[in-house]
Each structure stands twice: as structure tokens, then as C-alpha cells.
């Protein structure tokens, strides 16, 4: 008799869960179609507005999407005056960004985790870390030029721009772990290292990956600025800078759009990683 009582409600719950998830899948694909529809519409609207205002202004300094897309194809196939094609410029910039970003991840994330677990050290060193944090990456350019050359210079400047936000976001993710999770583990006799490695870090991981995504845009900001002051010929920042002096705004816009598209792709890739790793995180809907 007691057995019957146990089993009964759970079968019900199980069926309900299955029904709910089926419904959720249907709803998801409906939502996805809607999202794609809206995005196509807003892209079309944006291009129309751009083309229209360009025709109204009728200025060589503000080419519309038709002119820009012709330039885009030329850059893609034939390349610029020096013969460097657009994919090559993009590849070089992307390579630099990923190196700088990787260096920042390898330093900022471990340090953020350590100081997040050990807050007194952070509070005891704030007088040094806080002013450093507020120095804009662009102010580091003279130092970068003096002390680094070639690839190292770019990596350093991206590192400077990405390190602090990533460090702070990681540290906050670690130090805001649910106190109840920690209590649960403490009552069960967990050691400090078990709590750090098995409770606090896994709990902070979604926030850490989110932070990696958030610092992608400062990383691109830094690379473009760094390439603009450097003497080398390749890179999207260099492309923009060179042709700005020649007033070839169509090429400048191609460079700008390329950065935007690369940023979007990197963001989507990291979001896919997030979705795969943290399937347990439900999006909150209001």
C-alpha cells in the first residue's frame, strides 16, 4: 500500500515533464523562425535607410550599400593597392585579437578566481589595481611602441584592454557564490579546496564564459587602435587608416563592416559554447 502511494505521483510528474518539454521544443522553433524573420526585416530596413540617405546627401564621403558592396567584392577578389585581399587583412587582425584575448584569459581568469576566493588580497591591493584599471588602453600605446615590436605590441595592447574587465567580472562571479551551496557542502564535511574546486568554480563558470564574451568588444577596439598607429601594412585597422587618408570612404566602410561581422561571428561562437556547456541555465522571460 505504501509502495503504491510512492509511485503514483511520480509517474504523473514524469508525464507532465515530458509534455512540457515537447511543448517547449515546439515553442522554441516557432520563436526561432520569428527571430530570423525580424532580423531579416531589420537588416533590409537598415540597408534601405542607408541607401536612401546616401542618395539624398549625394556625397562621395558617404557611399551607399550598393557602392560599398561593389568595393567589397573588389577587395575580396583583387585586394587593395598593395595586393592584400580583405580576407588576409581580416585573418591578420583576427589572429592578433585571438592571441591577445587568449593571453588575457590565461592571466585574468586564474587571478580572478584566486582573488575571488581570497577577497582580503584584492582589498589589500586595490590602491594599485584600481588606478591601473582606469588607464584606457589607448594611453598605453606609447609604452607599447617603446617596449614591444611586431606581434607582441598588438598582443600587449589587447591584453591591457581586456585583462581588467575580465579579471573583475571573473572575481565577482566567484565571490557571489550561493552561500547555501557552500553551507550544504560544509555540513557534509567538505574541505576548503573541495568547496573551491567543486562548488564555487563550477557555480561561477557561466559568469566567466559570459565575461569572455563581454570583453570581445574592447578587444576589437584595442586592435583597431593599435593597428592605426603601427607602421605595418596589414590588418583591418590599417586598411581603414590608410584609405581614410585617401578619402576612400567606401573602403573605410568595408573595413568597419568586416570588424562588425567578425565580432558577431565570434560572439555567436562563444554563445554556442555557452549553450552547450550550460544547458541547465534557463533563460528568464518576463
Amino acid at each position: 500500500m505504501a509502495k503504491m502511494r510512492e509511485v503514483e505521483p511520480v509517474v504523473e510528474i514524469g508525464e507532465m515533464t515530458a509534455a512540457v518539454s515537447r511543448e517547449r521544443v515546439q515553442k522554441l522553433s516557432r520563436d526561432r523562425r520569428r527571430v530570423i524573420g525580424f532580423n531579416s526585416l531589420s537588416l533590409l530596413l537598415f540597408l534601405l535607410l542607408w541607401e536612401g540617405s546616401s542618395r539624398l546627401l549625394h556625397s562621395v564621403f558617404f557611399p551607399g550599400p550598393l557602392v560599398v558592396s561593389r568595393t567589397f567584392v573588389v577587395l575580396l577578389v583583387e585586394g587593395d593597392i598593395q595586393g592584400y585581399t580583405l580576407p588576409y587583412h581580416a585573418y591578420v587582425s583576427l589572429y592578433r585579437v585571438l592571441l591577445g584575448f587568449g593571453a588575457a584569459c590565461l592571466t585574468a581568469i586564474p587571478l580572478g578566481i584566486i582573488l575571488g576566493l581570497w577577497r582580503p588580497v584584492y582589498f589589500g591591493t586595490r590602491v594599485v589595481s584600481e588606478p591601473l584599471r582606469f588607464i584606457p588602453p589607448l594611453a598605453w600605446i606609447p609604452m607599447a611602441i617603446l617596449f614591444f615590436s611586431g606581434l607582441g605590441r598588438y598582443v600587449f595592447l589587447i591584453w591591457v584592454g581586456v585583462f581588467f574587465p575580465l579579471f573583475i567580472l571573473t572575481m565577482n562571479g566567484v565571490s557571489t557564490a550561493s552561500p547555501t551551496f557552500v553551507d550544504v557542502a560544509r555540513v557534509l564535511g567538505a574541505s576548503r579546496s573541495f568547496i573551491a574546486l567543486r562548488i564555487i568554480i563550477p557555480n561561477a563558470l557561466p559568469q566567466i564564459v559570459g565575461a569572455m564574451r563581454a570583453v570581445m568588444s574592447p578587444a576589437w577596439m584595442c586592435i583597431v587602435a593599435a593597428e592605426m598607429v603601427a607602421a605595418e601594412l596589414v590588418g583591418l585597422g590599417q586598411l581603414i587608416n590608410n584609405y581614410a587618408t585617401l578619402l576612400r570612404m567606401d573602403i573605410v566602410i568595408v573595413g568597419m563592416i568586416s570588424i562588425g561581422i567578425l565580432g558577431l561571428l565570434l560572439n555567436e561562437a562563444l554563445m554556442a559554447v555557452e549553450r552547450a556547456l550550460f544547458r541547465y541555465r534557463q533563460e528568464v522571460k518576463v
Partner: peptide, 22 residues
């Protein structure tokens, strides 16, 4: 505790066995 405080990154079995893992 008042709230179940299950760790969302662990499945039900590994939530249950936390104390044995420790």
C-alpha cells in the same frame, strides 16, 4: 535547508551523492 539548493550543474544522482563524494 529551506530551499533545496541543488547544484544546477550536477544531475540528480551527483547531487544526491555529494556527501559520499566528499
Amino acid at each position: 535547508f529551506q530551499e533545496p539548493a541543488l547544484m544546477p550543474w550536477r544531475d540528480l544522482v551527483s547531487n544526491v551523492t555529494l556527501g559520499l563524494e566528499i
